[in-house]
């Protein structure tokens, strides 16, 4: 019989090796998968996407900017550009580079996959927002056109991604860019967040952590060089001006301004109290949102808190004659007027 001490040590070593190999994100297997992503096709496609993005935003694209975004040397970047123009995807001129029609439609195809995938993750899975982008970076190079269209059909052919960016159609149509920076708002002006840029990741994570989401109503309070103060869904938020560059807003009409004071959420309703639903936060997405609306939670619905579970959460609410239990995290995304 094997000595139990040795057996345990052997087991420990095996477990450690397996962990190093397969642990998500940091394991060798995960690194290998990421490294493979950096290969030819991905590089070409990422470059096209970057150039397209800059053209869309009217910024000049250079060898250096490509090298910076793709994390490659300027030499490699120059070589890449030569290859792209040899493939007929772009032309080089004095100011930098420009996509040909072929290059343009290729780039749009990649963007379509990327944004569809992000929307899919947001609506149909429980992948956290900070991982949407990196997952889509992988998916955009692996999904075939047929798979892409199946995916689109499956999730109801969405036309905006969860950051508020339009998703190009299969034929490569995309509406012109709308909206402007949050900083352009005057004090007291209302607007709605139409886009939250997901790069750089650290900034995006910070904005998400503040509870900001596309479709949120904001009102500028005041701003200085050090900080920007604004109300989002009635709640005051302070950000560094640098961070607000990642937020795009669009003005809204007066009648659409529903929120002036901080909003109460359903989670704040006490047992026995009654309230009217004002809106459901846009941060509640996908199946959860649809199910909730199917059960009758729509603006105007009267809701009464009936009872709490023995463990305190969830809480049961009387909604349109039925008794429905909601978890606190979801109730917190339903805004009410008491």
């Amino acid at each position: 019989m094997i000595d139990p001490g040795k057996a345990l040590i052997l087991f420990g070593i095996t477990a450690a090796v397996l962990t190093v190999l397969f642990i998500p994100k940091y394991g060798l297997f995960a690194q290998w998968k990421r490294a493979r992503h950096g290969m030819n096709r991905a590089l070409v496609e990422d470059a096209l996407k970057h150039i397209y993005d800059y053209e869309y935003k009217n910024i000049n694209c250079t060898t250096e900017s490509i090298a910076g975004v793709l994390l490659i040397s300027t030499d490699e970047s120059a070589e890449l550009l030569t290859r792209l123009s040899a493939m007929g995807l772009l032309i080089t001129n004095d100011n930098g580079v420009k996509l040909t029609a072929d290059g343009n439609s290729y780039a749009l195809r990649i963007i379509r996959v990327h944004r569809l995938w992000e929307r899919y993750l947001a609506d149909e899975t429980s992948v956290p927002p900070t991982e949407w982008h990196s997952s889509a970076e992988l998916a955009e190079h692996t999904l075939s056109p047929a798979e892409t269209e199946t995916l689109a059909a499956q999730i109801g052919n969405p036309n905006f991604d969860p950051h508020g960016d339009p998703i190009p159609t299969p034929t490569g149509e995309m509406p012109p860019r709308k909206g402007h920076s949050l900083l352009s708002l005057k004090s007291g002006e209302f607007a709605i967040i139409t886009h939250i840029e997901d790069e750089p990741e650290a900034v995006f994570a910070q904005l998400i952590a503040q509870g900001l989401y596309v479709g949120m109503q904001v009102r500028m309070i005041d701003r200085s060089n050090e900080r920007v103060r604004f109300a989002a869904d009635g709640e005051e938020i302070v950000l560094a001006p640098l961070l607000t560059n990642n937020l795009t807003v669009a003005p809204i009409t007066e009648e659409e301004q529903r929120i002036t004071a901080p909003l109460d959420s359903l989670a704040s309703l006490k047992i026995g109290e009654e309230a009217h639903v004002l809106s459901i936060s846009k941060a509640m997405r996908g199946q959860q949102r649809r199910r909730l609306m199917d059960l009758g939670v729509v603006p105007g619905t009267t809701i009464r808190a009936e009872m709490k579970s023995a463990s305190g959460d969830p809480t049961a609410y009387a909604i349109r004659g039925a008794t429905v239990a909601l978890r606190r995290q979801h109730a917190a995304m339903i805004f009410i007027r008491k």
Partner: peptide, 8 residues
């Protein structure tokens, strides 16, 4: 079902 519009 509660509805015919969701994707279940």
């Amino acid at each position: 079902t509660y509805s015919l519009l969701s994707t279940s």
